[in-house]
Structures are given as C-alpha cells and as structure tokens.
Design a protein around this nucleic acid. Sequence first.
DNA 1: CTGAAAGCGCTTACAG
DNA 2: CTGAAAGCGCTTACAG
Lengths: 385, 385
Amino acid sequence: MNNKLVNRAILDRLLFFIFRRFHHIILYLYDILLYYPSNFIRFRPVIKKRISIKDIAKQLNISITTVSFVINGKAREKNISESLTKKVLDLVAELNYHPNALATSLRTGKTKIIGFLVDDISEPFFAGIARRIDEIASSLGYKILFSSTRNDTEKAIELLHIFKDRHVDGYIMALPEGLEEEVKKLIQTDAPVVLFDRYVQDVKTDYVIIDNQNSTYNAIEHLIKNDYKNIGFVTIDTVQQQMVDRLAGYEKAVEKYNLPAIVKKINYVNSAESIKEMIDFFKAEKQLDAVLFAANYICLDGLRTFRKLGIQIHQDIAVVSFDDFEILEFCEPPVTAIAQPLEAIAENIMKILLKKLKKGSKSAEKITQVSLPTILNVRGSSAKK
Amino acid sequence: MNNKLVNRAILDRLLFFIFRRFHHIILYLYDILLYYPSNFIRFRPVIKKRISIKDIAKQLNISITTVSFVINGKAREKNISESLTKKVLDLVAELNYHPNALATSLRTGKTKIIGFLVDDISEPFFAGIARRIDEIASSLGYKILFSSTRNDTEKAIELLHIFKDRHVDGYIMALPEGLEEEVKKLIQTDAPVVLFDRYVQDVKTDYVIIDNQNSTYNAIEHLIKNDYKNIGFVTIDTVQQQMVDRLAGYEKAVEKYNLPAIVKKINYVNSAESIKEMIDFFKAEKQLDAVLFAANYICLDGLRTFRKLGIQIHQDIAVVSFDDFEILEFCEPPVTAIAQPLEAIAENIMKILLKKLKKGSKSAEKITQVSLPTILNVRGSSAKK
DNA sequence: CTGAAAGCGCTTACAG
DNA sequence: CTGAAAGCGCTTACAG
C-alpha cells in the first residue's frame, strides 16, 4: 500500500531538499529504478509511456546527441562508428521509436506542414488540386492543412493568421478577394507563398495559372473554323484577372475575324438569378449560333437555361465550356470544353514551393510565374454546322 | 566594424568563463542591452524576432507565469488583479502577440489537429464531408490534416502512423480495406477515432453511417408502387458492409412483394471493364423494367452503358441511383436518387469526436454508433409506367 | 569519436 | 496575489 504513495513528485521534493547539487544524479538513479523495478523493490506496474530519444540513449548507455545524429542520418558526417550506428538503428527499429514531430518542430522552427487555402475545398477543381498536391507533399514528408474561405474576406484573413500561428512552412492559395494586402505582408516576412488559379498584377509573387487568354482565343477560333459566325460569350461581372483575360481572348478572336462581339456579363449572386439573366439574354440574342461559357458554374447555369427554353445543344446553338467536368460528357451531344491540366498545375505549384522551402528563407530570390496551356476537348456540341 | 562581431555566441562564451553562477543575470543585462541598444553602445539594428511570452513578461516586469495565466483566461481563477490582467491583455494586443502553438502543443500534448483519412479527397462525397468538417472544426479552433489512401493498404497504414507521429488529437476516417487491425490498435491507445461511410462489424468503435438497408428497401418499394415488376440491382462484388447492406435491403423488398431478385455483382476493376460487364447483363436480362445502381460510380457506368446500347431512361427502363450527384439532374428524364445527408453526417461525426476530445482519454466510454436516414429524391426516371 | 548542456516557447505544480 | 523553475522531446554549437 505504502509503495503506491512513493511517486515521483514526492521523491523529487525529498531529493531537492537533501542535496540540490546531486538532484540530477539521484533522479537518474530513480529512473533506473523505474525501468527495472523488480530488481529493487516491489512497485506498481510501470506506466506505458511514449518512448523518447532519452530512452534509446539510456538503454545503449550513450548520449542523446549521438542518437539524434544517427536518427537524422548524420552518422557518417559526425564520424560515428558503424557498429554504434547499427546498434542505435537496431534499437530504434526494435522499440519502434518515432521522434516526436512536435519537439523537432519547436526546435527547428519547421513543421513540414503546408497550408492550403481555397474558396471551397469541395469544389471539384480545388478538391482535385488538393489530392494531387497532397500526393506530392506526402511523398516528401510534408502534410497539408486545408481550409475553405467561403468567399468571406474576414474569415480568410483569420485563417491565414491561424496558419501562421501554427507555423506552416509554406502557403498554397487561390487568392481570395480582399487578401492582397495580407498576402503582401506575408511575402515580406519571407514566407514561401505560391498562388494558383487567380493572380493579381499588383502582388509580386510566385504563381501557377493557366493561359486564359489563349485558351478562349483558340476555342473561339475552333468555332469560327466550324462556320459559326455569331458567337456569344457569357461571363460574370468581375475584375478577377483570370476572367478579364478570358474575355480578352474572346474579344481578340472575334475582332481578328471581323465578327460581332456579343458579351453577357452576369451579376452573379446565385444560380437562380444567373439563370434568369441568361434567359433574358438568349431570348434577346436569337441570332447567336454559338456560345462560350467562361467557367464551369456559368456553363452549368447555361445548360439549365437551355432546358428551360427548350434550346437544343448544337442543333440550335453550338456550345463550348471553359472548364471540363463530367456532366458535359453526358449532354446530348456531349459538350466541347477547355480543360485545365490539374496534374500539371499541382506539379508546378509543388515544384516552386519545394524550391522555396529548400532554399531557406533567404530573400532576393527569383519569382517564378507559370502560365500553363489548356486542352480543348472537342466534342459534338461544336461540330460543323 | 568591430561591433558587428560582438554577437551573442561570443558574449556567451566570455560570460561563461568569467562567472558561471551569474551567467543568467549577466545574460539578462545583455538582453536589456539588446533591447535598448542605443542607450549603451552603437549597435547593429535589432533583429526583428518573433515575440514570445517572455517579452511580454519582461516589458511588464512580471513573471511569465502570470502572463500565461492571463492569456489562457485563468486570470480570475488564479486571482490575478484586474488591473494587471488588463495591462497584460493590452500589451498582448498592442504587440499582436500570438502564442506559439508548437510550444503549447509540445507542453500539453494537444495539437488541436484532426487527421482526416479517405480513399480520395477529390471524390465529391469525401470533399463535401471535408468542407463541412473543416467548418465545424475551425469554429472550435481545430484544423484538419488530410490525406488520400488511394486504395493502397500499405500507404494507408503509413499515413495513419504519420498522423500519430504528428500527434493529431483525433482521427476521422472512411475505413480503408485492410486497416481493421491498425484501427483496433489505435483505439486501444485511447485515441479518439470516428469512422464514417464504412464500418466493420468486428471493429467496435464510434461511427456515422447511413441506413443502407432501409434506403434501398424504400427505393425498391417506390419502384414497385409505380408498377415495376422486374427490378434489377447492380452492385459490385465485395464484402464491404455498406454494399452488403444495400443488397440486403433490395432482397428484402423483392422477397416481400414476391418479385424475382435479379442481381448483377460486378467484379470492379475500372470503368471500361465495368461497362463491358453491364452490357452483357442488360443484353441478357431484357425483361428488366427497372434497375437500381448501388453507388454513384456504378450508376455512372450504367448510364454510359445505356448510351452504348441505345437504352432510353424511363422509356425503356426505370432508373434509381444510390447517391445523388449533379449529372442525374441533367439526364433526360432526370434520374431518381437516394441522397446521403452530407450536412448531417459531418455534424454527427464532429459531435462524437468533440465529445471524445473533451473527455480526455479516459477509457471505458460509451460507443456512439449513428445510422442516418437518406432522402429519396424522386425524379422522372422512376415515374409510373 | 562522443557527450554535457542550452534552448525552442510554452504550462503548471509548488512555494511563499 | 505572484514568481522561480522544471520539463515537454528534440537539435546543435562547443568541448574534449
């Protein structure tokens, strides 16, 4: 019964008062006693505790320094004998020891965590990027912490701060509106940041986008070659650079071929409102023989509009979608689409980020800005008249 | 020039040899000097360093203990005077101090990170759950670390270990095949684990699933009420409990109404192979007037099969899909579907997990197993003959 | 070739 | 009502 009361706290106090200078030595002896209790006195069962570098060192009677070096693959560099190295590695394997990542992080300042911030992780495009980024990151020992801003600037700023507090090593984000200044500040602290999907002329940083202007230009040229002459362009009313660029590509193409520019800029609130606006648009512009929808959700609403108006794809109007998604394959006929190269986008993001991560936070690095080509998946909806 | 060389390392050494016992006091003086260099000697600009609890304490001339208590809202509890509390909070706000989450985690053993493990984060169902879980978690100070197993058992086990090494506070997972033993081990260590989507009879743990059996039962009953008499069921050949339950619901329904059970179990490898098998099936079973596809990807392949065979939805065969997804709305006519309640699933997962997180890791807790009802979205594909 | 010890930035049991 | 100090589990500059 009394043995139970002999716990570390009480022992500590006693030892402290007996002889302060030998505190550590005595504690050490006490530890031995804890580890091999049966050799000394009857003791309550040893509590299973997470094994640490100290335990490894103790069992081999060497210092934790040596253990640390071996574990971190610095055995050769630090001239640690092969036999000792092997002993350490064997024990590590035997005890299934894994270093505490938290302690390592606190010490080194690196967490091997990357923050991933997008509007909504459940959007297929972002979810697709997330999966691919995670795959590359995981293979290199990094993990992804994600969050969705849900188009809320306040929330986005807060999330950025949370990432910072948690010491993420790097940031990947589809820049939310209103976060330009925060991101600038972040970049000034030498934090590795890679943007994708959107970019802002004003924010000088690394990013990976697609070549929006040429994508729409090529799509429109494809329609023109298939004899379409009244080609509409449905987009949203925004200053977002990628949407501006898509429109510019359209305008460039129709101008070059001397065709009329028929543009509808939806004041996007939600799907229902958007459909209403499109109904008016398509009713007013009966001469249209083709249309390009500037993004997946716009195209979705466009297809819904066609249903309501009884408009037949291809038969009544040729259709091209910016962004490719499964539904397009199931339309009758299937819809031609500009596809974003998810794989390439993810790879480029990670390539840039990892380069920055490796370099350490020395500033004055070069900025890498990548613009990737898209693929035009030609289907029945844009076939020759 | 020489001033530049007066760096902390050298000073440390000197101090160390001069008088070891006063080391700390001297260092403290040195710190003052660092902070107010202009008062003493010409010094290079102070390096901007991350502000810590120490800095707050030093500036107010109080102990870090007090600062810590105030920051953690224990001021009242620890009887710290209101005026001092205010002083601390003011300085914290002024200096924009944020505690280092890493240090807190190392000390407390809590990371406020939840590990989220699924087959593929880019699948709409998982991505949808991910977003909702993140929202609830974020509002409570937790963050989500995710990874995709890609149906690789080895990888899944590794990922689980990585989560463990990173000390996630809890786990949410759609149990991958072959991970039963690992998860059992995890649960034995009192780690909070909540499964969803799948479950295994054998693994006693908390989970949130949907009521698979009743879902298919109701859907079949719906078809029967609309006069369908030869109802097929297309599923995959698997022992996964949720698929077994879906089949059971079907079988129960046709048995009750004395109808034939016409079941196709696909040996699922990929979409192309699956379509091949379905083509054979539908060619052989011409008498079918309705079919229920047991999951979204099966339904997708079913729809592709219909295209190839020129089978018209509803006109030739009534269709119901287990899982609702956007494409179904765009079919002609739109397809009836059993919809999983994403919101409710996410909420239940988090409710259970948070309860376990709060309790601390005392074992002998009750196990919560939730089975949620689904919604049958009735559309044109299953209308009366 | 190896080890003692400081320190990353917190929390908290004690002491007064 | 407040503080000194140990300790979470690592890494690494020094010392020998």
